[in-house]
Design a binder for these strands. Structure first.
Lengths: 161, 161
DNA sequence: AGTGAAAATTAAGGGCT
DNA sequence: AGCCCTTAATTTTCACT
């Protein structure tokens, strides 16, 4: 938590965010290091919590979830447990962000049909008023941030390992 | 694209969404199949586009991105190319959804400081009016959908491989 | 489609610079 | 920290079912 990420660490992060199953030998080639040194760096990145896991990405349409929606929820109450329980039960709710602003939660919901989406939104509406927008498309490939911002306001304060 | 996912395929998807680096030998144990049969199934899921890739997940705070925000953009124009270009250049924009509703785009933006966020929002404001909400927390662990909905409206029409 | 075993490749650990 | 070498494990291919 006290040491900075160097250029090699950033190169590793860029590669594993692009291909989480890359072999250490191949990764080592790409970051110009030996396989064992590379593995040791990845181990440290994992252990220090910089890399939190590896996930396969699935095409939602191809597995039958034709509909993606953004649901915003105004939640007047302060008791968040029942909502958290619903989030845990409903695997169709892919992501949940608690935010500032008028809407307390922003949720990303996958559904197999409009009837299915309606069912999920109805369940959420138990907790407050909802605003639902359907997703047409995702213009961005999935990705994470790359190297530290190097210009002006982008400069990192002190990236931690 | 014409064949359904069976229970074993779903089990595989659940496992690789949880741990994208799981060894085929271990995955095989979990889905009660031999390693080679498991590998063949994964190969087909990849080739048919069900599994679109594997990504390492990174803790944004630990790499210096202390701030996460949801930016909604009202985009009056129809020429989307300049915006797409900005999205491509700005790696801080982690996700972009084009949606129905008043706001045409919903973006997830990571920033190292409020000054950095301001810079990104200013760049987006070139295209239309923006609404920015900061993210307090993410109450959900990262995950994808699991097995086909089996009750009523959740039932999958015909999951495709 | 799945199994089981062999061959090729990769991962993990110890010792050294 | 990193590199090299050895051993263990995994991946990949293939003949057979």
């Amino acid at each position: 938590m006290t040491e900075s990420l160097d250029a090699t660490d950033w190169a590793i992060l860029t590669e594993v965010q692009r291909d989480g199953r890359i072999a250490y030998t191949e990764l080592a080639r790409r970051v110009n290091l030996s396989a064992s040194a590379t593995k040791e760096r990845v181990r440290r990145l994992e252990e220090s919590g910089v890399i939190t896991g590896y996930r396969a990405e699935v095409d939602l349409e191809r597995i039958g979830y034709a509909i993606l929606a953004v649901v915003r929820l105004k939640y007047p109450g302060t008791r968040h447990e029942p909502l958290r329980r619903l989030l845990g039960e409903r695997r169709e709710i892919l992501e949940c962000l608690r935010t500032t602003g008028e809407d307390c939660y922003v949720l990303k919901v996958a559904a197999t049909s409009m009837a299915h989406l309606e069912e999920v939104v109805d369940a959420l509406a138990e907790f407050g008023s909802t605003t639902t927008d359907l997703v047409f498309s995702r213009p961005l490939p999935p990705r994470g941030p790359s190297g530290p911002g190097l210009s002006g306001a982008n400069r990192l304060p002190s990236a931690a390992v």
